[in-house]
Write a protein that binds this DNA or RNA. Structure first.
Lengths: 252, 252
DNA sequence: AAGAGGATGTTAAAAAATAACATTTTATGA
DNA sequence: TCATAAAATGTTATTTTTTAACATCCTCTT
């Protein structure tokens, strides 16, 4: 059936950027190359693919994907956007705001209101995203840039923080548990987050529920260090109780 | 000349999503279709276009373009690439290298050899480009990020330089004249460049000839401050003489 | 079961791409 | 400046891919 074949072609083009007709002839040994051509022509007429000599190619992903930068940026965008919407409500005009790195914070950056803020971030892509929208004062922290978490870190970064006053910090941990607190998988990343938590007047932790009850090697803060806990669904009662005990605001 | 032809093809592909070889044969009546094919093959190998049957098509614009970030990045790519090729030859293994901001330096970033270098830059996009290629130590300078020249600057940036030793600095001025030396249009940008020139063991100035005999408000260096002058064509004799007098190496 | 219409197959001709080599132009160094 | 190497472009024959036109087969409806 032609429908299945086209679906399979779509699938293949999600894996590989291009697919050759010869490959497809192996994939579909019971049809002729002419049929495959007609499938491809159909998909092109629907605007789904680009025909190239000898085969077809997928439309290119956006720049961030291209960089391989946000390896997991596509995951759970809706959830991240939702968390971002919850978070930005707390931003008041004229404040000094710290933004962590990563794709959740990127969603915040995209909807960051123009409130004459003073912004600080460790993530160059986030800094760029914000500057391009309007033209606020965005401070990009200096340091060694790391590919994995697209964030700067190192001694320079820590020093940078010393001279910077922060009203509100939005931080995304990689894991959270009652025993280990908020943790991440990288030592220098941990140092930065720790310094920020210490320096900031108010600390907002943003994490989706998939990170609950997980531990990673480096803890940068305990529950009692933070002020607001933003997540996607109500945590279990044990956590809620402890949050209440420490007067931590819970948002979901 | 092949430069111009490719440049024109780029232009056409900014207007129209696709361009056919037949169109190009009308556009360039004095070359053969084979030459056009080779141009297109070259542009594809550079990742600039997609070859399709009978012609080529433009990539969907990426985030950087979309942002208007490299407003003038498209201009004169060939020339910039050429300058970049001249420049990278001077990079020796294990050195500490400073890279200025801007699209000329971006071309250097794209072909930067993997020589166990220690890199420092003020331009987040350049830092990202390099980290994504292999995984060297890239230091991104901290400071206030500015939209116009996509570069950081400010006191933090200046302080950053103090703790950083630089063997070779590649700097792109916005203007050059014998009277005013190397200048740029922005005060804080000027401060950075000035600090770098002072701090670096060797300073390489990269500029295409269109910048000759121009003045901008802020001078960051005089001819005698630099070591190597990289440009696209032989400057006039007056300049050459003075370069020789100061023992500045001229590359073109 | 006949027939319409869609999907697929077949084939020859047209178009486009490639490869290999020839020629011209441009850079480079003595 | 000239000689030479290297790069760019041209030429041509060959191969690959695409197109087009028509034939066949399948499937559904009546």
């Amino acid at each position: 059936m032609s429908y299945d074949r086209r679906e399979r072609i779509r699938q293949l083009l999600q894996k590989n950027e291009v697919v050759k007709i010869k490959d497809l002839m192996v994939e579909f040994p019971n049809v002729t190359s002419m049929t495959i051509r007609r499938d491809l022509a159909y998909l092109e007429s629907m605007g789904e693919i680009i025909l190239v000599r000898g085969g077809a190619r997928a439309y290119k992903k956006n720049a961030a994907d291209e960089a391989g930068y946000f390896q997991r940026a596509g995951e759970n965008i809706e959830a991240k956007r939702h968390l971002a919407e919850l978070a930005v409500k707390f931003i008041e005009p004229g404040r000094s705001v710290f933004l962590d790195s990563g794709s959740t914070i990127m969603e915040i950056a995209k909807i960051m209101p123009d409130l004459n803020l003073s912004l600080l971030t460790t993530d160059p892509l986030i800094a760029l995203e914000i500057v391009k929208r309007y033209n606020p004062t965005v401070n990009l922290m200096g340091g060694v840039l790391s590919y994995g978490n697209h964030s700067v870190s190192g001694l320079q970064a820590i020093n940078y923080i010393k001279n910077f006053n922060i009203d509100i910090a939005f931080i995304v941990p990689s894991a959270f548990s009652l025993e280990s607190g908020f943790s991440c998988g990288n030592n220098s990343e941990c140092d930065i987050k720790h310094s920020i938590v210490k320096k900031s007047r108010e600390t907002y932790l943003i994490l989706d529920s998939s990170k609950f009850e997980k531990n990673l090697p480096f803890t940068f803060a305990q529950l009692e260090d933070i002020d607001v806990f933003i997540t996607d669904k109500k945590p279990d009662d044990k956590i809620c109780k402890i949050l209440k005990k420490h007067q931590i605001k819970l948002i979901y």
